[in-house]
Nucleic acid binder design. Structure first.
Length: 319
DNA sequence: CAAACGTGGGC
DNA sequence: TGCCCAAGTTT
């Protein structure tokens, strides 16, 4: 290392110490963080099915859809059944979308099931049935955003991409910016930092992405981080600052009880279990407030999650 | 860019 | 009990 790559700051005066710490560590392995974090990962990584070589790019992609806003423990059983039933994108694409919604079970955010089905169809039509390798082509698939495109390219194909999920953002917020939590929405500064911290070597970059994510999931957790188990605790800006509590606007929380979302969930739960079309009256029983109930059902229909039939009957979408 | 979008487990 | 949080994307 003869030169020190520029490490962007997170743009606040409070981050001077963090920037200095990272810049100083540059002399070692690029950041001083790569070795400790990837070594820790090599020893402590969970043996998750989508990390096994047999999972393939499709397995990785399915897992990424399911893991969006959803804990690993709840994904595991659904993932196994899904891959057993639809081992390739073509297998899913050949099914009615409603079957994807049904198999999604209670994972939540069922539009993901619909989008995964659409993505499988797009893969079949545009990419000959193989999950594309290029970031731009991944990003063009339904339900694939910035994070998922980078994750599939990195985890499935070993490419060098900044993978910025909630875990990584929290790790960087603490280790580098010295803050307890990252901003509510991903910022340009965070993207810049993630790119700057990315190891040059492709293989190492891929492991780094998975390792920082795992560190955030297992050690540097939101509620009660276990800093005594952290491989970079000694270099952590937040630790060095005395673990200051979060400042600024409260992190946005979502309400659920009494919302349309809850009603949609109840309606769809009935339709998932039904083998034959469901009469309006059965759906009416899940929620007593008629205006909200109708609005929720309309929403499900316009989202393509529910198909209205003649005679006021409904079912999961067949095409 | 804020808001919508499910569900369940932990503390 | 009730709030917080979980590998985001879309509009």
């Amino acid at each position: 290392m003869t030169s020190t790559p520029a490490i962007p700051t997170l743009m606040t005066a409070a981050d001077d110490t963090a920037s200095a710490a990272v810049s100083a560590a540059e002399a070692a392995d690029g950041t001083g963080l790569h070795g400790p974090v990837t070594d820790w990962f090599a020893e402590h990584a969970r043996d998750l099915p989508w990390r096994r070589p047999a999972a393939g790019a499709w397995g990785v992609m399915v897992s990424e859809f399911m893991l969006q806003q959803t804990p690993v423990s709840r994904v595991l059983p659904v993932y196994e059944q899904w891959l057993a039933r639809w081992p390739r994108p073509a297998d899913l694409a050949a099914e009615a979308p409603g079957e994807a919604v049904r198999a999604w079970g209670r994972l939540g955010y069922p539009r993901r099931a619909l989008r995964l089905h659409s993505a499988a169809s797009a893969i079949q039509e545009r990419h000959g049935g193989d999950v594309p390798r290029e970031h731009a082509q991944l990003l063009a698939l339904p339900g694939v955003g910035e994070y998922t495109a980078a994750a599939v390219a990195s985890f499935a194909y070993g490419q060098r991409h900044a993978v910025l999920d909630t875990n990584v953002r929290r790790v960087f917020a603490r280790a580098v910016a010295g803050r307890q939590y990252p901003p509510n929405a991903t910022t340009a500064a965070e993207r810049k930092l993630a790119r700057a911290l990315l190891p040059e070597d492709e293989g190492l970059a891929s492991r780094w992405a998975a390792a920082t994510m795992e560190l955030g999931a297992l050690v540097c957790t939101a509620r009660s981080p276990e800093c005594h188990r952290c491989p970079i605790a000694a270099q952590c800006a937040w630790q060095q600052a005395g673990s200051p509590a979060h400042e600024g606007p409260p992190r946005r929380t979502q309400t659920y009880a009494g919302t349309d979302r809850q009603v949609r969930g109840k309606l769809l739960a009935v339709l998932r279990e039904a083998v034959t079309p469901v009469p309006q009256g059965v759906l009416d029983a899940v929620w007593d407030e008629p205006v909200q109930r109708a609005r929720a059902l309309d929403g499900l229909v316009s989202d393509g999650l529910v198909e209205p039939l003649t005679g006021g009957r409904y079912r999961l979408p067949h095409a």
